[in-house]
């Protein structure tokens, strides 16, 4: 079955050959075609070549065109550092205080920063394999982009001391996210939303309700209105906000390894599909293939009977140097378990 056939049959409750499986490959794709991570900067064709090659090499079900979470913030003035052969990181936010928020303008996805190159990568990936695989484009959530625009510590202090300014900034970030979402959809891709800073490892569930949720709901509502099912990923601890994450209209929640899939299934499994959560660092990067297989069987045991379905996945994007053998081991374990799932196969 192709990934698209597999998802379609799974969604209709028809027989499939195995559960969908998504080791979330980002910059590891550079290793597949033997280029340096920094070569992706400003090169949509190369990102597409790498993502397509990685998909063909490993045979997973969802391609996510992604290099880092900063693309939207960068297009609005944040400074991003690009190490030669590692994932980029934020060097400095666009502004350093609330009184500068008025100077920010929502990015134009066709012109600003690296957004046009990412859109090109999405278009090319869809052209190459969109007929058989699900191709998504990474979209950073408004609250998280806001944190990159003004600095995380400044933003979370403002959440308590100047909530109006947080809303002003998130409003601008939302406008930028909506424009980028539209462009991603026009490229033939489904936006896949990550809102890392909404994690309960960072802000309280109450603060998420106030500053994260309303903007996510608008963003996901828009994508949904264009007929695309959205996967929402929030890193770290999320147990206290699963209900709210489902209320955003997301069709699938991608759960980090800091949270428990079996619990998520009980709490929101009748409302959303779940995806997760083999530990990216401890198991996928540092573990043996045997440990990857064991962890993969464990997550299947926890969530394969989720009422709205389950996608075997890593808990977050894979580290660049994740061994290919471990990515293969995850898919092999899912193939071995097969379908329908027998309890003995999960031991």
């Amino acid at each position: 079955m192709t990934p698209i056939e597999r998802f379609a049959a799974y969604g209709r409750g028809q027989p499939i050959d195995r559960l969908p499986c998504v080791p979330i490959v980002g910059n590891t794709a550079a290793r597949v075609i033997g280029v340096k991570v920094s070569e992706f900067r400003g090169n949509g064709r190369l990102i597409a070549d790498a993502q397509v090659a990685a998909y063909r090499r490993f045979g997973y079900d969802v391609i996510r065109v992604f290099t880092d979470l900063y693309t939207q913030a960068e297009a609005m003035g944040a400074r991003v550092h690009y190490p030669e052969d590692e994932t980029a990181y934020l060097e400095a936010p666009a502004i350093d205080s609330a009184d500068r928020i008025g100077t920010l303008r929502p990015a134009d996805p066709r012109k600003d920063g690296n957004l046009p190159h990412h859109l090109e990568a999405m278009e090319r990936t869809v052209q190459a394999v969109g007929h058989e695989a699900v191709v998504t484009g990474a979209l950073t959530g408004p609250f998280t982009t806001a944190s990159f625009l003004i600095g995380t510590e400044t933003l979370v202090r403002m959440a308590l001391k100047n909530p109006a300014a947080v809303h002003q900034l998130c409003g601008i970030a939302l406008e930028a996210s909506l424009a980028y979402a539209e462009a991603i959809l026009d490229a033939g891709c489904t936006p896949s939303v990550t809102d890392a800073m909404c994690s309960s490892t960072v802000i309280s569930p109450k603060q998420f309700q106030e500053f994260g949720f309303p903007y996510l709901k608008k963003l996901i509502g828009y994508i949904d209105s264009r007929g695309r099912a959205v996967t929402l990923h929030i890193c770290g601890k999320t147990r206290a906000i699963w209900e709210a994450m489902a209320d955003t209209g997301a069709a699938c929640l991608s759960i980090d390894n800091d949270a428990n899939l079996a619990e998520a299934k009980t709490k929101v499994g009748d409302r959303v599909r779940l995806m997760g959560n083999v530990p990216p660092s401890e198991v996928m990067l540092q573990g043996t293939t045997a440990e990857v297989r064991q962890a993969t069987r464990r997550v299947i045991a926890q969530a394969h009977d989720n009422p709205k379905g389950f996608v075997v996945a890593s808990g977050c994007s894979l580290p660049v140097e994740t061994p290919f053998a471990n990515i293969d081991a995850m898919l092999d374990a899912v193939r071995e378990v097969g379908w329908p799932i027998q309890k003995e196969a999960l031991a």
């Binding site: 510590e153 979370v156 202090r157 959440a159 308590l160 001391k161 309960s200 960072v202 802000i203 309280s204 603060q207 206290a240």
Partner: peptide
């Protein structure tokens, strides 16, 4: 005990 989160802790520290 997850009554405070990073924002609260930072303001307490201030």
């Amino acid at each position: 005990t997850e009554e405070y989160f990073i924002p609260e802790l930072l303001i307490c520290a201030d």
